[in-house]
Amino acid sequence: MNASPTDRERRIDPFSTAIADGTQLIGRLVIAPMFLLTGIAAISDPQKFIASSSLPAPAVALGAAILTEMICGSLLVIGYRTRLAAGVLAGFTLMTAAMSHGNLTESTQFAMFWKNLAIAGGLMQIVAVGAGRWSVDFN
């Protein structure tokens, strides 16, 4: 089920539906590169990410993070299995906020924590609304 406007709604108000279609595409294209670029950076310099990790198995966590960011980020761009990809990334982002930015007494960590929550909120909107008409998911 896609929350995009129906054909009847498109005929009644084509301007609003065009805006909705465009903003759904732009929203996906704006949020996905953050994950793709982070995944590429982790591939380029894995030791930097492993050294900064406080997890018990940092290499395994890094591999899982790279796969999650690259696969789900790519799915968001093309709009395929978008709700699933956005849901996985929302969970990943919430987990990252809790595990990496939990020191809320430090101002930078506090800001990063809330930034991650905001990103997760945007991803949850994609889960709720779907990819939109300009996507592989649209049928």
Score class of each variant (00 low, 15 high):
residue 32 A to F: 07
residue 22 G to Q: 09
residue 19 I to C: 04
residue 39 G to R: 04
residue 17 T to K: 04
residue 34 M to R: 12
residue 54 S to K: 12
residue 20 A to Q: 14
residue 53 S to F: 01
residue 15 F to R: 14
residue 52 S to D: 10
residue 10 R to K: 14
residue 28 R to H: 08
residue 17 T to A: 08
residue 43 I to A: 05
residue 17 T to Q: 09
residue 46 P to E: 02
residue 51 A to N: 14
residue 24 Q to C: 01
residue 10 R to F: 10
residue 10 R to N: 09
residue 12 I to L: 12
residue 22 G to L: 12
residue 15 F to G: 04
residue 32 A to P: 06
residue 9 E to G: 07
residue 21 D to T: 12
residue 11 R to A: 14
residue 35 F to M: 02
residue 11 R to I: 12
residue 53 S to Q: 12
residue 50 I to C: 01
residue 14 P to E: 00
residue 53 S to N: 06
residue 37 L to E: 06
residue 12 I to M: 10
residue 12 I to D: 09
residue 51 A to I: 01
residue 11 R to N: 13
residue 42 A to W: 04
residue 20 A to D: 15
residue 15 F to H: 09
residue 34 M to V: 11
residue 30 V to T: 15
residue 44 S to T: 09
residue 31 I to T: 03
residue 51 A to F: 01
residue 46 P to Y: 08
residue 9 E to K: 13
residue 13 D to W: 13
residue 11 R to M: 10
residue 35 F to W: 04
residue 35 F to G: 02
residue 9 E to S: 12
residue 40 I to R: 05
residue 46 P to G: 03
residue 49 F to W: 14
residue 37 L to C: 01
residue 29 L to W: 15
residue 22 G to S: 14
residue 48 K to A: 11
residue 55 L to P: 00
residue 50 I to M: 00
residue 24 Q to H: 05
residue 14 P to V: 08
residue 30 V to C: 10
residue 45 D to P: 00
residue 47 Q to S: 11
residue 54 S to M: 06
residue 39 G to V: 07
residue 15 F to A: 14
residue 22 G to P: 03
residue 52 S to L: 03
residue 8 R to C: 07
residue 23 T to Y: 09
residue 33 P to I: 04
residue 25 L to R: 05
residue 50 I to N: 01
residue 36 L to H: 05
residue 9 E to A: 13
residue 26 I to V: 15
residue 47 Q to A: 11
residue 53 S to I: 08
residue 10 R to C: 03
residue 12 I to Q: 12
residue 41 A to Q: 13
residue 54 S to D: 13
